[in-house]
Amino acid sequence: MRALARIVAEADGRGGTRLARLRGEPPLQLRHTPDGSPMATVHLIGSAAGPLGGDDLRIEIEVGEGAALCVRSVAASIALPGRDGAPSRMTVTATVAAGGELRWLPEQLVAAAGCRHQATSTVELAGGARLWWREELICGRHDERPGDAVVSTAVDYDGGPLLRQSLTIGPGTPGWDGPAVLGGARATGSLLLVDPDAAPTPPVVLGATAVRMPLTGPATLVSATAPDAHVLRGYLDA
């Protein structure tokens, strides 16, 4: 299944944000969920049944100057194998203009047994843009060894690279759950905070397997591993 969803958020000229475009198609359905704040919030709905092997899902996000958009999902997505062994793809591209803010805070991605999933996110931030970007990856459903999954994130700020990371898990990669990578943890993830106005901070140890690190650029990254999704969220709550 192929699907494309688009969200375009613009400043409404009254200090709030208007969704100039909000278009989804199954299984990527979108719902604007106003909460009275100047930030527009959109939920991805009904994504729990996939993606399935063979799916090619794309989400395009534009946040204009001075606009603020938060994207969440109502449930975790579960990457499942398809019948023919084809990989599933989820591709997110986002641009945020100066003075704009994007929060990408979906629920977890669960890599189910036998999956072959590739999640690729590309974010371009203009100078002065803000971003919260969370990725959470759960290695298999309950008591299940995961399939293979790759979660790649590339963020540029003001025309230069800010973050490039690609996390690969699953039996196709030797050592993936060993002591150099996950140490047997079933959950891992990160939260990127880009804030051009924030003062630089030193690294902070949040726990035995969680740290907040300043990047080279106006950003910090919280990175964590955890025994389960709940503990992981404790480190990455935003």
Partner: peptide, 21 residues
């Protein structure tokens, strides 16, 4: 350069920061 590999190992980063303390 931007197309070159970008593999991340969470524990490599986390334990490097712990080690530095």
């Amino acid at each position: 350069p931007q197309e070159l590999p970008a593999h991340a190992a969470p524990l490599a980063d986390i334990s490097a920061e712990l080690h530095a303390t």
